[in-house]
């Protein structure tokens, strides 16, 4: 067992070691929730000298806002589509690289990590160039021999664009998780199946995938929350897209708070997001039994 000291000694050491961390979390993670609740009941704005408590007026305005349904639908589409891409493409690629020699596999994974490691501003710039509406954009250069005219990608296909842009980032995360999960599968299982004459596809279907259940669920859970809260890349590339086309909830809240300088209204929008996120977390915890979340990559023997 642990060689402790006296109880007070232990307490002192604990406070020194854990204290700063807990303080930071309390200040920057916990208290913000309370401040946001508080702010959402006021009409605080950087544009006006005083603020007052306005009760539920901000929330009413959310309901009445002419574009709130569009924003909600955008968010739903964006989260589900990008999630699907992240998980499926990540899974697909990790499976593929499973069958490739180690060096190439490492190379591919490294390349896929590049977008994630780059500064978001630069990554956004690269996509802005690819999707440029003029004839100098990369996609247009490739397509113009066929279509003759450049296509304004960020106007007509804004939503698919941001799905893919965020998708590359998210897929790299799932790629890592799945790859390490695959590596953790005892090779004997697969060898045995091969010796028994099973085709590779069978092996994937019956052995590998079931063993990947928990990593897949973990990635899904984690990424759903990430996507719900993500808006940085969207801000850089389309900033809400032509006319609310790519305005997702978190971006909408950001615009309200920091472009229109309405902190109270922005806080109300953020609160709604928190509630939705909490609901999702609760559902996930129930479905996955939270202990499993703490050990995400442990392969369960089914």
């Amino acid at each position: 067992m642990r060689l402790g000291g006296s109880k007070t000694r232990l307490f002192l050491m604990t406070s020194i070691f854990l204290g700063p961390c807990i303080l930071i979390i309390a200040l920057f993670w916990i208290s913000p929730v309370f401040s946001t609740v508080f702010l959402s009941f006021t009409d605080m704005s950087l544009r006006r000298p005083e603020w007052h408590f306005v009760g539920l007026r901000n929330y009413e305005y959310i309901g009445k806002h002419p574009f709130i349904t569009k924003v909600a639908i955008n968010t739903a589409i964006y989260v589900s589509a990008t999630l699907a891409w992240n998980v499926l493409v990540g899974l697909f690629l990790s499976l593929l690289s499973f069958y490739v020699d180690d060096r190439s596999s490492l190379l591919f994974r490294a390349l896929w990590l590049l977008p994630r490691a780059s500064p978001p501003v630069v990554y956004g710039l690269l996509w802005l160039w690819v999707l440029d509406s003029s004839e100098y954009g990369l996609l247009n250069q490739l397509i113009m021999p066929i279509t003759k005219k450049p296509i304004p990608w960020l106007v007509d296909y804004a939503m698919p664009a941001i799905i893919i842009i965020n998708g590359f980032i998210g897929a790299s995360f799932s790629l890592i998780v799945f790859s390490s999960a695959l590596k953790a599968i005892p090779p004997d299982y697969i060898m045995a199946a091969r010796v028994d004459g099973a085709s590779e596809l069978r092996i994937i279907k019956d052995i590998i995938l079931p063993l990947m259940k928990w990593p897949i669920l973990f990635v899904t859970a984690w990424q759903t929350l990430s996507l719900l809260a993500s808006y940085e890349y969207i801000l850089i590339v389309t900033d809400g897209g032509p006319f609310y086309d790519t305005e997702v909830w978190s971006l909408f809240a950001y615009h309200q708070a920091f472009k229109h300088l309405e902190l109270g209204f922005g806080a109300a929008l953020a609160m709604v997001l928190v509630i939705v996120a909490l609901i999702i977390v609760l559902i996930q915890m129930k479905v996955f039994k939270f202990r499993r979340m703490i050990t995400p990559v442990k392969i369960e023997h089914t």
């Binding site: 979390i25 200040l27 920057f28 993670w29 208290s31 913000p32 929730v33 401040s35 946001t36 702010l39 605080m44 984690w222 929350l225 990430s226 719900l228 809260a229 993500s230 808006y231 978190s250 809240a253 950001y254 708070a257 920091f258 902190l263 922005g266 806080a267 953020a270 609160m271 997001l273 928190v274 996120a277 909490l278 999702i280 977390v281 939270f290 979340m293 703490i294």
Partner: peptide, 23 residues
């Protein structure tokens, strides 16, 4: 505490941003 750390990931960044700005 461990659970908390994981749950913290659930907090949308924008919520924190507004409140941290205020703080």
């Amino acid at each position: 505490l461990l659970l908390l750390i994981i749950a913290l990931h659930a907090f949308p960044g924008i919520t924190l941003l507004i409140a941290i700005f205020y703080l």
